[in-house]
């Protein structure tokens, strides 16, 4: 099912959580809503679920206007940040809940519900834990139960709020793969909220980046990482050196750095350069006095200060940085920079 969000705005008291957000989500897509806390990403997710209603704008499921439809009518699967499992019900009862509450002919017979629960337990690899209670499970297992419960109703869209936020790093990684596998197996349109860019870029087909209640950019992980369209995205996604300066006549100057800035208007500006976008240069570039060297797998990270006093972080392959030592000065060329008006 496709979801179409059109100019949705929502205010809590005097705090604007969403400021006219428009977003199209394709059928079967896995989309991440990425942003810092307070960016409105959870509010947007809750508005899609029907747990929050927008002040303005519309939300369409395919071509049906669902803006003010009840949560129950939307047939969404929602996975809460703290899972919100029913603590007095067994795992199997939790998963069956969405089917158990159906009335009349819509309610499947008991054997059918049981079959569906077993199937879901298999899908999330908790086959033997149906009789357990939520407090007898680990965090990762609870997360799987929450996922199975959300999928039980055969939702048209699966929504997850910070799905891995409460888990430790190793469990987080394996569950991330798990979610991808389950998404590919069920093909259900999936939207998840996260403040963790690694999670968003590593898992989603497309990423929507929110800040202050507006969408800054939507694109594939590669697009938002390599072609940031705003200063916020450049700084928020991936690592970047942030260099303040000014643009004048298509040229950016910041300290002892000078870069071509075609198409950027005159005035104060800011340049973002990722650590791997530096190169060792002999001729032109800036002089960096290296302060610290940190090996990281196949690369070496250099931290240092330019003659103009700008702190920079650069990453080079081990071979390229073989001759570098703390205290030494090296010349850096800049292969690529993202320059925006400040």
């Amino acid at each position: 099912m496709t979801i179409s969000i059109r100019s949705v705005a929502k205010t809590f008291g005097r705090f604007p959580a969403l400021n006219g957000v428009s977003l199209e989500i394709a059928d079967g897509e896995l989309l991440a809503l990425l942003g810092p806390s307070g960016s409105g990403k959870t509010t947007l997710l809750r508005a899609i679920a029907g747990l929050e209603f927008p002040d303005k704008g519309q939300i369409f499921f395919d071509d049906r206007d669902m803006t003010y439809a009840s949560a129950a009518a939307r047939r969404v699967g929602f996975v809460f940040q703290q899972y919100a499992l029913f603590r007095h019900m067994s795992v199997a009862k939790n998963i069956a809940f969405g089917l158990d509450v159906r009335k009349g002919p819509a309610k499947p017979p008991r054997a059918e519900i049981q079959r569906r629960v077993d199937e879901l337990l298999r899908l999330v690899e908790l086959t033997d834990l149906g009789k357990r209670f939520p407090n007898q499970l680990s965090g990762g297992q609870r997360q799987r139960v929450a996922l199975a419960r959300a999928l039980a109703v055969g939702p048209s869209v699966l929504l997850l709020d910070e799905p891995f936020g409460a888990l430790d790093a190793t469990v987080r990684k394996s569950l991330r793969r798990e979610l991808r596998r389950i998404h590919d197996a069920t093909g259900v349109t999936t939207i998840f909220v996260t403040h963790d860019q690694e999670e968003a870029l590593g898992l989603a087909d497309r990423v929507a980046i929110l800040n202050h209640g507006v969408i800054e950019q939507v694109g594939t992980p590669q697009q938002v990482h390599d072609e940031p369209r705003s200063a916020f995205v450049a700084g928020f996604v991936g690592e970047a050196n942030c260099i303040p300066g000014a643009v004048s006549g298509g040229r950016f100057t910041g300290g002892d750095l000078s870069l071509s800035a075609a198409g950027v208007g005159d005035g104060p500006g800011v340049a973002y350069v990722r650590p791997h976008q530096f190169s060792r240069s002999r001729a032109e570039g800036v002089d960096l006095t290296v302060r610290r060297i940190t090996p990281e797998g196949p690369v070496v990270r250099l931290e240092g200060v330019t003659t103009g006093g700008q702190s920079l972080e650069a990453a080079f392959s081990r071979e390229a940085a073989a001759d570098v030592a703390p205290g030494r000065s090296i010349k850096l060329g800049i292969d690529r920079a993202y320059i925006f008006s400040a």
């Binding site: 679920a49 029907g50 747990l51 009840s70 949560a71 129950a72 047939r75 969404v76 699967g77 929602f78 809460f80 703290q82 919100a84 499992l85 029913f86 603590r87 007095h88 809940f97 969405g98 509450v101 159906r102 419960r149 959300a150 039980a152 109703v153």
Partner: peptide, 25 residues
């Protein structure tokens, strides 16, 4: 209100949510 919201998002009515989720808790 997480558990209640979860119940409602799965299609439970307000009354059903109270009896199945709130009351036992």
């Amino acid at each position: 209100v997480d558990e209640e919201e979860a119940a409602i998002s799965m299609g439970a009515s307000g009354l059903r949510t109270f009896w199945s989720v709130t009351a036992p808790n």
